[in-house]
Amino acid sequence: MNIFRLAGDMTHLLSILVLLLKIYATKSCSGISRKTQELYAIVFMARYLDLFTDFISVYNTFMKLIFIASSLAIVWCMRFHPVVRRSYDRELDTFRYFFLVGASFALALVWHDKFTLQEVFWAFSIYLEAVAILPQLVLLQRSGNVDNLTGQYVFFLGAYRAFYILNWIYRYMTEPRFTRWIAGISGVVQTALYADFFYYYFISWKNNSKLKLPA
């Protein structure tokens, strides 16, 4: 564990807490893409299959369980909570996300560390995570306004990916034989998507105008 990875994990946790706080405090999920949240639930369940086979540390196991439980809780709230579900922007959240799941799985079948069930699902989860934010960005683009908590949620998610890139650079330099091509390249793609969003978020915030992402 190095400081960059810890900072990445903490900002990731913070992003989820911000989202839960928004839903709990406002009893509303407007501006949140349920499709993105469902993709994250799939990402964590596919990636953490190793909970059954490998023990790394108490911290590692605890965080994995937190990520699985919190993502399922958010999806549950948006689908079934009697008050929260009414504010779901169903007509704006129309991204065809099965395409992302299919493409990520197809890529995992051809590019993985080992052709085993666990490794293919791990690679699948990495590719899917890289693009899981897309339905959320499309929803924000359509609704045209981003409330502070939703903006902070996406900001912390972006910070988490940026810290992980620093972590990989650090490990590459300090650990012999450390390479993470799959996670590294996917991580750069994912961080670029967030950086792009923040560029337009910042511009619209500075001009005090509606968010306008390029189509």
């Binding site: 190793d50 990520f67 080992k114 972590n167 034989r177």
Partner: peptide, 10 residues
């Protein structure tokens, strides 16, 4: 190579 070692990241 270590790319196929146990995945120790989240």
């Amino acid at each position: 190579s270590s790319s196929t070692d146990v995945k120790d990241e989240l």
